[in-house]
Amino acid sequence: MRLSASAVAAASAAWVWVPDDAEVVEGNEYTITRLPDYFDWDLSVLAFTPTGPLGPAVDAVLERARTFGLPELDWEVGLSAPAGLAAELSVRGGKVKLTLDVLARDLSQGLPALPSPAADVTIRWATDFETLRDGSAVGVTGFGGALPPDERIEADAARAAASVPAGGGGMLVAYVDGTPVGSGGVSLVDGVARLSGGVVVPAARGQGVYRAVLDARLSYAVMHGATTALVKGNVATSGPILRKAGFTTFGQEPIYAVPLR
């Protein structure tokens, strides 16, 4: 099966994740979310579907975002974003803070053959408090922010303990000599395996840890009927590794930091 650009763009646009402890505000043409304090990203645009002139629609989002009292708004310009959105954000002082590669791979013919890691890597599902805390700590190292409260970790571990055997996915954590060194998430929606949060601590990079976590996520996805794997990878880090694993880049989605003050 050959993946089409339109199908990948649609799957990318449909991929919206919001933790249940986030604040969500919906307008007629937009959705904004404020994440909990332990995230490094405070305020983001989840959806933007203007029906009229683009400039006033952008201004309406920014006006609502200013009521949160935060210094900036993160706005991802997706593959299906309205033409001219990036220019409108730039005019309002927006600067690209991160660029994501949208990559996908056909899984209908089975798994890619990935090289074995140089290190002796053990992979565990984060279905208990300790493992999920380890994975969250690895994520903080790679993405910033802080560890969630213990009660949040306990609740997420309980959800994962039900979700993983049911085919819904969860977080995998990689260990080398008993030390957590990598993590990555996978969720399955309508035959698409969404791979998220892949990260390796700096001291363990270059040993194939990311590939080991990727292989485990893809194996799980195929086992549970996924026919496509989708990733939004950092162009400077995970993107090159994913292309070597047979993923194709279908475009880029820059994330703009737009000043609110």
Rank of each mutant, 00 (worst) to 15 (best):
A104R: 01
D128V: 07
G93F: 06
P117T: 03
I123D: 04
E154K: 14
V96Y: 04
R152P: 04
S116A: 15
A119S: 12
V91Y: 04
V199W: 03
P180F: 02
A155R: 15
R124Y: 00
L100H: 14
A137D: 14
G168D: 14
M171H: 12
A113S: 13
V176T: 10
A174S: 02
G94P: 06
G94C: 10
V199F: 02
T122H: 12
G191D: 06
G182L: 01
S90F: 04
A126H: 12
G135I: 11
G145Y: 11
A162L: 15
L172P: 02
A146R: 13
A104E: 09
A155V: 12
L188E: 00
Y175S: 01
G110S: 09
A155W: 13
D101K: 05
V199I: 10
G94V: 13
D190G: 10
D190K: 13
D177Y: 03
D120N: 11
S136Y: 09
S196R: 12
G144M: 07
P148K: 03
A157T: 03
G170R: 01
D156K: 08
I123T: 13
A203R: 14
P180G: 03
L98S: 04
G184W: 01
S136G: 03
Y175L: 00
R152I: 12
A119L: 03
G135Q: 11
L100T: 00
A174N: 01
L111Q: 07
G93H: 04
A166Y: 09
V138I: 05
P148Y: 01
G94Y: 05
D156A: 14
G170E: 11
A174E: 01
V186S: 01
G167W: 10
G139R: 09
S116Y: 08
V96P: 04
Q109T: 03
A161S: 15
A157N: 06
V121I: 06
D134M: 05
G184I: 00
R105W: 05
A118F: 09
D106H: 07
E154W: 06
G184Q: 00
P115T: 14
P148M: 02
G145R: 04
A104N: 02
